[in-house]
């Protein structure tokens, strides 16, 4: 009798917990183009070359097709991925890049503040993206609030709540 109840309760907890946990997990991100960060960096490009707003705006910006076409209007490799860029350009569409790092709606993060003011390196928050040969499907760094705060404390940056939540 009692055992049945216990088993039942545990089962319910496991199922509900599992569902809730699954909801919390970010779905895997699949990019429209298998972009090779490492290769572009090796060509001497800086992050800001494609993520062009990273120093000036709160957001870094995902590269527009025009940015890509500055170099790729003529084929440079035989990669089918490169061909996809031109196809997007021909169709006059933007590239439907998928956002990898998502902030909750109440968190206000400024790239300008971190990159231009505090001179934080990109990999501090984005991990070894520069070495990635294919776009990662999950964030390379698990960005939690405690993770943010640890760095802020280390660097003696503001840990004032309203600095990030407004």
């Amino acid at each position: 009798m009692l055992r049945g109840v216990v088993i039942g309760v545990v089962a319910v907890i496991v199922v509900v917990g599992g569902v809730l946990f699954a909801q919390r997990l970010e779905p895997a991100v699949r990019q429209p183009i298998q972009f090779n960060h490492a290769k572009h960096i090796a060509q001497g490009l800086e992050c800001a070359a494609c993520h062009q707003y990273v120093k000036e705006q709160t957001f870094a910006g995902l590269p527009t097709v025009e940015t890509c076409m500055m170099c790729h209007s003529a084929p440079q490799t035989k990669s089918p991925e490169e061909e996809k860029v031109r196809q997007f350009a021909e169709k006059g569409q933007g590239i439907p890049w998928q956002r990898l790092y998502r902030m909750p709606g109440h968190v206000f993060f400024s790239h300008r503040r971190h990159v231009s003011v505090a001179k934080v390196e990109c990999q501090t928050c984005h991990g070894a993206m520069a070495q990635a040969t294919t776009p990662p499907s999950r964030p390379l760094v698990n960005q939690s609030m405690s993770w943010c705060l640890a760095c802020h404390e280390k660097r003696q940056a503001s840990v004032d709540c309203v600095a990030c939540h407004k």
Partner: peptide
């Protein structure tokens, strides 16, 4: 609701 170091009374909505 808390007072930040500069004396501004903030309201942290997720809290």
């Amino acid at each position: 609701t808390y007072k930040n170091p500069e004396g501004i009374v903030g309201q942290i909505y997720p809290r």
